[in-house]
Nucleic acid binder design. Structure first.
Length: 365
DNA sequence: AAAACGTGGCT
DNA sequence: TAGCCAAGTTT
């Protein structure tokens, strides 16, 4: 393969086809960092809105370093992989204290930040600082699995090393950041799962295209099995307010809020599950009085069916004791928008807001 | 080193 | 519909 030609063709294509993303207009290090963390395992189109809200709220390192986790999580709500947001808060503290609020250009210093791995360090170094550091993400692996017609598992350490070295050898000294983004842009827009080889600027140098093995590249790992879960949750209403609790650290969705509930056990009805979970989690006797809805959602390898019920106190009233939460309490339903919820619970709230049966609960008075 | 960690859109 | 999978990192 002709490296000079490959790089030139790719950059020319990028100049003509790059998407207009907000952090590309003025790639300063803080903005590049924010965009790269948000982009991890997330499609660019979804990142844009979150990025703009984030930059508005936390415009620089110092603003972020001063932020509360509660506010950071609320801004991140719906993006998933919330440890990214918590790690950014930790990293902002490191940057403010150890680097005086100035984003470091040293690749090793970048790599040492919480939440910054091999890929992200290379991306920031090249895009924000113009350094010739490779950034090998799934796009880049896919592109070179085809260009080089690699028959090894694409996620193996060996493949990653080969691809990183290839990227290094192709990297132009004057446009490192554009080259990094061009490779990923090509993977996202052209050399995708279902590739559009007719539109590819480097199809003339693609070994897989010549060998007619494009559809077999990259060689992916066998996916893990998904698990189905049935859950039940209850919205306890008392004197016009609803009970929510904040999830524990070292669990799924740490620090996010939720309505109490849990898995439906063998022989239980969803209503019985809600009553049992309320007793276990918050030591309250409740009775489900109305079926709100049943919704499904997915997280990591789980597919969840969640049965949702409106609940009342079984014996008039009571004080919650939070056995399986950091804290919690009764809040006015109008205030729920101020808390970060996992998507399933967020959708439950939206459902109730849109359902006339619960109009009085969400009315402003 | 395998598994956990979210979510929504597309096929 | 049931996967597939997206600018990965951490443990």
């Amino acid at each position: 393969m002709d490296g000079i030609l490959f790089t030139q063709q790719l950059l020319d294509w990028y100049d003509a086809n790059r998407r207009d993303l907000p952090w590309r207009r003025a790639p300063e290090p803080y903005a590049v960092w924010v965009s790269e963390i948000m982009a991890q395992q997330t499609q660019m189109d979804r990142v844009v809105g979150y990025f703009e809200r984030w930059m508005e709220r936390f415009p620089d390192i110092h603003a972020l370093a001063r932020a509360h986790e509660e506010d950071v999580l609320k801004l991140w709500e719906g993006l998933g992989y919330y440890s990214r947001a918590r790690n950014m808060l930790k990293a902002a503290s490191v940057l403010a204290v150890d680097h005086d609020g100035v984003f470091p250009s040293d690749p090793a210093a970048i790599r040492s930040l919480p939440g910054v791995g091999e890929y992200t360090a290379g991306a920031i170094a090249s895009i924000a600082f113009g350094l010739p550091e490779p950034a090998v993400d799934a796009n880049v692996l896919r592109v070179f699995a085809r260009v080089l017609d690699l028959d090894q598992p694409v996620r193996s350490g060996e493949t990653r090393a080969v691809v990183a070295e290839t990227v290094r050898s192709l990297m132009p000294d004057d446009r490192a950041g554009d080259f990094t983004q061009a490779l990923m842009e090509l993977g996202a827009l052209v050399c995708s799962k279902n590739p559009r080889c007719g539109d590819c600027p480097v199809s003339g140098q693609c070994a897989a295209l010549s060998a007619d093995t494009v559809s077999r590249r990259p060689v992916l790992p066998v996916p893990g099995k998904t698990t189905r879960i049935n859950m039940a949750t209850g919205v306890l209403v008392h004197e016009g307010r609803v009970l929510i609790q904040k999830r524990l650290p070292d669990d799924v969705w740490p620090g996010l809020w939720e309505f109490p509930g849990g898995g439906i056990e063998q022989g239980e009805t969803p209503e019985q599950t809600v009553a049992r979970e309320y007793m276990e989690e918050v030591e309250l006797a409740v009775e489900p009085v109305e079926d709100i809805t049943t919704l499904t959602y997915a997280y990591t390898r789980y597919r969840v069916t969640m049965h949702c019920f409106l609940c009342r106190f079984a014996d008039g009233s009571g004080e919650p004791v939070f056995n399986e939460a950091v804290t919690g309490g009764f809040v006015p339903p109008q205030d729920l928008s101020g808390y970060a919820f996992p998507s399933g619970h967020r959708r439950l709230i939206q459902f109730m807001k849109a359902d006339s049966r619960f109009a009085d609960l969400f009315s402003d008075s």
